[in-house]
Computed example of a mutant assay.
Amino acid sequence: MQKTKTYLSETVMNLKPSGIRRFFDLAASMEGVISLGVGEPDFVTSWSVREACILSLEQGYTSYTANAGLLELREEISRYLARNFQILYDPNSEIVVTVGASQALDLALRAIINPGDEVIVVEPSFVSYAPLVSLAGGVPVFVQTDGKQEFKLQPEQIEKTITSRTKAMILCSPNNPTGTVLNRRELEAISAIVQKYDLIVISDEIYAELAYDEPYTSFPSIPHMQERTILVNGFSKGFAMTGWRLGFIAAPKEFAQAILKIHQYAMMCAPTMAQYGAIEALKNGESDVEEMKKSYRRRRNYFVQSLNELGLSCHLPGGAFYAFPSIQSTGLTSEQFAERLLMEEKVAVVPGNVFGQSGEGYIRCSYASSMEQLQEAIRRMKRFLERL
């Protein structure tokens, strides 16, 4: 009998697989590969954090926590945000602990989107933003930033895309994949547009700990922005806790309680042992974060200078641990460059086009690798470019 219908969601069927994953899978099947593709710290989680987790297991803390997370952790998050970014959130009603920042993004979008609502996605963007908007029933609308302006979002670009259906915007600073950081003056200019058109902002600040050249400005710290911002953050990047899968949202009570409602049905709570580790990270782990940050800064300076010396033009990223050099001078597309570099010199990078149309002509290189690996990667890239 001929099949006449599918049982799968059309939205899911129309989603493209992650472009990053294909290169990870290719690299994993080869020996001797230097991977500059993974967006993950190369540091192990601080011992005191691991010890706190082990202690929680030994003491038998293996049950569910409150849906919003351990109150002690939420109180530490509240103190952390006040101490580092000068923003105040009530730990009882305005903070929710999630299973990574990725779940926090998903929950935030589902909490605010009605079918057909438009959400502005700034490109190049992290690969999950647009799919998560679509899965929530919304319509992603893309704003393309320009490498000649170091991929900094311009307020007039936002205004051109706004329609009667525009509800929200996803902002990411420091940015994945470009490493670009928006300073306070630039964020204030964006906030004027947000106010003018009554927008909600989902501010992805997972790389906030990794801003190198000037004090970091959190978007809800801009006047009048906290009331219309859902702040997404977590422990993966700055605290080197990727596998712990622990993030959080901080938002006005109306948003936070709507997010909590979804979270309690979809996930119940974040892993208990990880939450005890996170308490320790916030209480005593910031000196370890500072040491990691110093190391990333040294690697950034070496790697970006080396890329420019190779003829791959690259702005100095202000944060995160990514360089986003142009490969346009080679005459290859992003995918051609990345695939040939992997096959011929066993260096894995991510083609820029997987982060959106404005990423074509660029590649993303993570410098969260040892200095020795970065130096060897540069040598291999030099050989590759000389053959071209």
Rank of each mutant, 00 (worst) to 15 (best):
L8I: 12
S18D: 15
I20L: 03
R21D: 11
M30Y: 14
S35W: 01
G39T: 02
G39E: 06
E40A: 11
V44S: 11
T45N: 05
S48Y: 09
S48C: 13
R50W: 13
L55V: 03
A68Y: 04
L70G: 14
E72Y: 08
L73C: 13
E75D: 03
S78A: 09
L81H: 09
R83F: 10
Y89G: 10
Y89F: 15
P91M: 02
P91N: 08
S93D: 15
I95R: 05
V96E: 12
S102A: 12
L105I: 11
L107R: 05
I112C: 06
I112T: 09
P115D: 13
P115H: 10
D117M: 09
V119L: 05
I120E: 07
V122A: 03
P124E: 14
F126D: 06
V127P: 10
A130S: 10
S134I: 08
A136W: 08
G138R: 05
G147C: 07
Q149S: 13
Q149Y: 02
E150F: 13
E150A: 15
E156N: 00
K160I: 05
T163R: 02
T163A: 03
L171H: 14
P174H: 11
N176K: 03
N176R: 00
T180M: 06
A189V: 02
I190W: 04
I190T: 03
S191D: 14
V194D: 12
K196W: 04
S203Q: 05
T217V: 04
I222F: 04
M225R: 12
M225Y: 12
T229L: 01
M241S: 14
R245K: 14
P252L: 00
E254H: 13
F255P: 01
A258C: 05
A258Q: 15
L260A: 08
Y265I: 02
A266Q: 15
M267P: 07
M267N: 04
A270W: 03
G277T: 07
A278D: 00
S287Y: 09
D288C: 10
M292G: 08
N301G: 00
L307V: 00
L307Q: 08
P317I: 08
G318N: 00
G318R: 03
A320L: 11
P325K: 03
I327L: 00
S329H: 13
S334G: 15
Q336E: 14
Q336V: 07
F337K: 04
M343Q: 11
E344S: 14
V354Y: 09
F355V: 00
G356R: 05
Q357R: 07
Q357F: 11
I363M: 12
R364H: 07
C365D: 03
S370V: 13
S370Q: 10
M371Q: 13
R380G: 02
E386V: 10
